[in-house]
Write a protein that binds this DNA or RNA. Structure first.
Lengths: 362, 362
DNA sequence: CCTGGGGGTTGACACGTTTTAACGGTCCAG
DNA sequence: CTGGACCGTTAAAACGTGTCAACCCCCAGG
């Protein structure tokens, strides 16, 4: 479908015979030892506990390492040590900017601490999640950061019995002996609707994806909570002022259709709250095309605060989630758990979202 | 900065003592063999060449594997075999939707073929690239997909000498004995400007990032080529109709500033070509705010065709790059090179971009 | 001069798997 | 009845590193 036509300018050169210097990777700890005139054990010490070896010897070994271009064999280390220095990251959907930002945080933290990240996407399929989890287990990852596709608790417990720690991402832990990092979606929904009420809205539509998605449901719960709060009661408002528009998916196109439906169905609400910035951008477009003034006639607020909403025709107010931080903190917790499991206490960190006000509600 | 306040609801449960079933991961091929009443070698055969072992024996072994929850130790396999089944993916910037899409393609292809992906970001820093490359080498990856931060050819050659194959992503190979996959940016620039000319534009501004970025420079080259083409000459146009607006970075904010400058500087061009959709969205916003009609007064075209441009106030025409395909094909080429290096021919595949016309040039 | 001690280094073994040559058993053909 | 071929299985030797007990040497103290 979207594949550009491929023009192979493949003049293509036959691979030249491998350089004569022998099979690659043959430079091991032994060769280094020989070159430096020490025993293999000493080389290993230089690599892992440099303080135990005399400065002059160390220098000699390090020189030999450089001369020979030695690179430590991670498999052998891992095999011998019983544990490696890689972690697994299993996300729901690589196409979603949310997970991309999380991944960025994870990668940065790992890179700084000398860990490697094995990336894996379940693409929301339990089978694929299962398959990739097995692969991670085979790789003997130190731990796993996972956004579970459904209730994966049983699988995670099995993993942990095998020594693979896990931290759940953007998901509440169902068991106490489990780390989890999430953002408070109920608070986010509350925050959004409270803001709309403060701006004078007296009727609100909630444009969302399926309520079977936890995030959509939680944000809705928060929204309705805001309508029961004293602040709303003082204005003589209640949940009757609230209306759902449920779409099957959460793309801009869905948002557009939702707004068209709202326009067709009769009197517009004062404000629209979208479960997602992509939906919000679609809604915005339909409203503008329909001659509706934003925020004059209808105020609009999205969720996630992805980069692009500030560049929309009317910059969108949104609820910001600390996505990058989410990744970093989760990684920190996981590595802490790995490094000293003895005194590690399982935590369930809940981040608070943040309201970012822009023109669409001003 | 952007970290939501963290509210640790860390009632936190002390980790329960490890289940008594002994150290985890202790289930090896030996235990399976004992349980099934065969020798370790047979278990290995069941795992790797099932056809060589009698059906009944195989069933017995498989049952034992299930009963014990055995998971093959990848490190040991890799150590013994001398090569594993992971590849490295080194991108320039995980925040860029372009690389995200590429990564999605890579991950899908690998997942299907049973490979694991180690994700790594150089964040445009040569030091970090070097550091992470070392890590990949230690992991004994089968090969590397890399978007080089600068001229990394020397490093890549060293890698290849150690048996790590490499395919360059979105970059032209400088040596023939090297695989590379890229998109033809010159053609893309040509395509964009040709389209603008066809629509009747007689003066064009090119809003771009630094021309030291290859992509920006190539697209510009293509744009100017279009102005020298017969089609342009027939309309009595030449390169004088072309103007650069160079910004330090390529965010929506930069685009906005660029457009403001164009408005301030005097007569607007008939059309604006942006090196990037993010820039284009900023330009669009500034134009609309300034009361400029798009496409009536000024036509606008972006580059990349990221998902959001179709949801902009005026849906943007853009040049689509087959990002997902780029990742898949590159992975295919790399794995092919790994699987039979003997008869592998190095290819340099150049994808052709595609024009996607929307309202902003209609 | 002898002894004790300690820092520095050594060498052998273990990690879990794959591989290969050798082995025993079975069946068929001579 | 016997020799050989074939099939399935086995035992043992690697892969490259980390660990640890033992060892060597040199020096300080007796």
């Amino acid at each position: 479908m979207s594949n550009g036509s491929r023009a192979a300018s493949s003049a293509a050169a036959r691979r030249p015979a491998r350089p004569a210097r022998g099979r690659p990777g043959t430079v091991g700890i032994k060769q280094v030892a020989q070159q430096a005139g020490v025993s293999p054990g000493t080389v290993s010490n230089v690599l892992n506990r440099p303080e135990r070896v005399a400065a002059t010897t160390r220098a000699r070994v390090e020189q030999a390492i450089r001369d020979l271009g030695f690179v430590r064999n991670g498999s052998a280390s891992t095999l011998r040590a019983g544990q490696g220095s890689t972690i697994g990251l299993m996300v729901l959907d690589l196409g979603n900017p949310f997970f991309t930002e999380v991944a960025r945080g994870v990668e940065d933290e790992c890179s700084e601490r000398g860990y490697a990240v094995i990336l894996s996407s379940s693409a929301a399929s339990p089978e694929r999640e299962e398959r990739n989890m097995l692969m991670l287990a085979e790789q003997r990852v130190r731990g796993v950061l996972i956004t579970p596709v459904d209730d994966t608790t049983a699988r995670l417990d099995r993993l942990r019995d095998r020594g693979v720690e896990a931290v759940m991402l953007d998901h509440i832990a169902t068991r106490p002996h489990q780390c989890a990092v999430a953002v408070d979606d109920v608070a986010g929904g509350d925050m959004a609707v409270t803001h709309l009420l403060d701006r004078g809205a007296r009727s609100i539509a909630y444009v969302t994806g399926p309520l079977s998605i936890r995030q959509c449901a939680d944000r809705r719960t928060g929204a309705r909570r805001a309508l029961r709060a004293p602040r709303a009661a003082a204005k003589d408002l209640d949940e009757a002022a609230f209306r759902d528009v449920i779409m099957p998916t959460m793309t801009p196109r869905d948002g557009q259709r939702a707004a068209e439906r709202l326009i067709a169905d009769g009197p517009l609400p004062d404000a629209i709250f979208c479960a997602n910035d992509l939906l919000a951008m679609g809604v915005l477009r339909a409203l503008l095309q329909g001659g509706v003034n934003v925020p004059g006639d209808v105020a609009l607020i999205g969720y996630d605060d992805i980069e692009f909403v500030s560049a929309a025709a009317v910059p969108l107010t949104s609820i910001r989630q600390p996505m990058y931080q989410l990744g970093r903190i989760a990684t920190e917790m996981l590595l802490d758990e790995c490094d000293n499991p003895a005194e590690h206490t399982h935590q369930q960190v809940m981040f608070q979202p943040e309201l970012v006000v822009r023109d669409s509600t001003r």
